[in-house]
Amino acid sequence: MAEVSDEVLNLMASHPWDESIPRLTRYAFRKMRKLFWQGILGGPAPSGIEAKDIVHISIEKILNGDRAWDPRSQENLFKHLISVIDSEVSHLIDGWENRHFFREAVLSGRPNSDGKTAEFWDNVSCPNSGPEEIVLAREQERLSEDFFWKFYEFIADAPLLQTILERLAEGIEKRADIAESMGIKAKEFDNLKKQLQRRLKSFQEIKNGEANNDKA
Rank of each mutant, 00 (worst) to 15 (best):
residue 210 E to I: 03
residue 74 Q to N: 14
residue 5 S to F: 07
residue 11 L to V: 05
residue 186 A to K: 10
residue 208 N to L: 15
residue 111 P to Q: 08
residue 91 H to T: 09
residue 53 D to R: 04
residue 110 R to N: 11
residue 38 Q to T: 02
residue 153 E to S: 14
residue 188 E to R: 14
residue 15 H to T: 09
residue 97 E to T: 06
residue 132 E to Q: 11
residue 66 D to S: 09
residue 26 R to E: 07
residue 169 A to E: 11
residue 15 H to M: 10
residue 122 D to N: 08
residue 5 S to W: 03
residue 216 A to Q: 12
residue 7 E to I: 06
residue 143 L to K: 11
residue 165 L to Y: 03
residue 155 I to L: 09
residue 19 E to R: 15
residue 23 R to V: 10
residue 43 G to W: 03
residue 170 E to M: 14
residue 100 H to Q: 08
residue 90 S to A: 14
residue 60 E to Y: 13
residue 33 R to P: 01
residue 160 L to W: 07
residue 213 N to A: 15
residue 58 S to R: 03
residue 167 R to S: 13
residue 63 L to P: 09
residue 208 N to S: 13
residue 186 A to W: 04
residue 133 E to H: 10
residue 51 A to K: 01
residue 194 K to Y: 06
residue 60 E to S: 15
residue 216 A to D: 11
residue 152 Y to C: 06
residue 69 W to Y: 02
residue 104 E to T: 01
residue 77 L to W: 10
residue 116 K to G: 10
residue 128 N to P: 00
residue 148 F to H: 14
residue 186 A to V: 14
residue 178 I to M: 07
residue 76 N to Y: 11
residue 103 R to K: 13
residue 73 S to R: 07
residue 91 H to M: 08
residue 183 G to E: 07
residue 104 E to F: 00
residue 131 P to V: 09
residue 201 K to I: 08
residue 45 A to R: 01
residue 165 L to A: 03
residue 168 L to N: 14
residue 65 G to A: 08
residue 16 P to K: 09
residue 206 I to A: 10
residue 191 N to I: 04
residue 180 E to C: 06
residue 7 E to G: 01
residue 121 W to T: 07
residue 215 K to G: 01
residue 212 N to T: 13
residue 133 E to D: 08
residue 109 G to H: 10
residue 172 I to V: 15
residue 171 G to A: 02
residue 54 I to R: 00
residue 161 L to N: 04
residue 19 E to H: 13
residue 84 V to Y: 02
residue 189 F to S: 01
residue 149 W to C: 06
residue 49 I to D: 00
residue 171 G to W: 05
residue 63 L to K: 15
residue 173 E to M: 13
residue 152 Y to T: 00
residue 33 R to I: 02
residue 116 K to Y: 10
residue 113 S to D: 07
residue 110 R to L: 09
residue 169 A to G: 15
residue 15 H to Y: 15
residue 149 W to T: 08
residue 93 I to R: 01
